[in-house]
Each structure stands twice: as structure tokens, then as C-alpha cells.
Simulated scan of single mutants.
Amino acid sequence: MPDVRVRVAQPADLDALVDLRAEMFRAMGTPDTNGPWREKARRWFADRLDHPDYRIVVVEAAGAVVACAVGAIRDAAPSPASPDGRDVLVSNVCTAEQSRGRGYGRAAFDAVMAWARRTGVGRAELMATDAGRRLYERAGFVGQECLAMRARLC
């Protein structure tokens, strides 16, 4: 990929990270991608740029951020599937609509996975959309029978 840079996100990338997160939600069919969540997301990214338990990666093409991915080490009680109780959550894998199909999302995802392997944590987890399923399966992710469930608390 000529004129393409895969790198750790910097403070100058915060707006692009929020815009890509909004794009991810649009692609998943979320109707309202504006609102107060955007400023909170910007602060969330800013607070984690240099945190050792997070890796936020961007892909820059022709000087513009076009894709990103996030890895986060999570702490949980040990279990048979995760004896140390820790795993890496991979999230926010997204490519700007006009830049899809060029391998940018894969490059961001691969960089986060390379970081995840270096952490020594034994397991990674993510929530896949249909569009990303093949990429994740090629990286060794397999579907689980346990369905995610959510409840609003407030």
C-alpha cells in the first residue's frame, strides 16, 4: 500500500477516531450518530492514547486517517477458558466508507492483533458484524454459542 502509514494514534487523530466510530455505527444501522456521545468518545480516546492496557491504531493514506482499530486488555475473574482472567477486547475496527476495500481496516486490525500477542494475554474477543466476519475468522476467531445480551441501567 504505497503512501499508507499504520501507526499508533496521536492527539491530532481524536476527531478522526470519533468520526470513524460514528461511521461504524452508521454502517451497523444506528440512526443517530450525532449527539453528546461524540465529545465523551473523544475524551475516552484521549484518556487512553498512552495507556499501556490500550492500543489505538490508525491507518493514514495520503495524509488522512482512513481506518482504525482498538485493543483493550480487560481484567476479569479467571475461568477455564481464560485461566489468567484477562483477555484483549478488539473493537472499533472501521474504515471510512470511501476508503473501503483497500485493506486499510485489515491493516489496523492486524496491528492491534500484533500488539495483543505481545501483551502475553492468552485470548482475544470481539463482536463481529457480517462485513467483518471473514477477516476475523481468517485471524483465528470463532463464533460462540453464548449470545451477548444487554440491559439499559438508566
Rank of each mutant, 00 (worst) to 15 (best):
P80V: 15
P83D: 01
G132T: 05
V8I: 06
H51T: 08
C68G: 00
G71N: 06
V58R: 08
R26Y: 01
G132Y: 09
A128C: 06
V59C: 04
P31M: 03
L49A: 05
D32P: 04
V88G: 13
R150N: 11
Y104G: 11
M24Q: 13
R5D: 01
P52R: 09
G143I: 02
R38Y: 06
R138S: 11
A9N: 05
E97A: 13
P52H: 12
L135Q: 01
R106E: 02
A61H: 15
A64L: 11
M24K: 05
D53W: 04
C154Y: 07
A46S: 14
E23L: 05
S79N: 07
R26F: 04
T95W: 03
C154A: 09
A116W: 00
T30D: 12
G105F: 08
R117H: 01
G140L: 04
L14V: 12
T119Y: 04
D15W: 11
R55I: 01
D32W: 04
D19N: 10
G120S: 09
A148G: 12
S91Y: 06
G71T: 05
R48F: 06
D13E: 03
G71V: 01
I56Q: 07
E23H: 08
G101R: 09
D87E: 06
V8P: 12
N92L: 09
V66D: 01
Q98L: 03
L153G: 00
V65W: 02
V70N: 09
D53L: 08
R138W: 00
V70F: 02
A62Y: 01
A107N: 12
A64G: 00
F141V: 04
G85K: 06
D87T: 11
G132P: 12
M113E: 01
S91H: 03
E23I: 01
R100Q: 14
V57C: 04
S82P: 06
R21E: 02
T129G: 13
G132Q: 07
V142D: 10
D3L: 13
C146H: 04
H51Y: 07
D15G: 12
I56F: 12
E125K: 15
M149H: 08
A148L: 10
L153C: 02
G85H: 08
Q98Y: 05
A72Y: 06
E145H: 12
G132E: 05
V8E: 13
S91F: 07
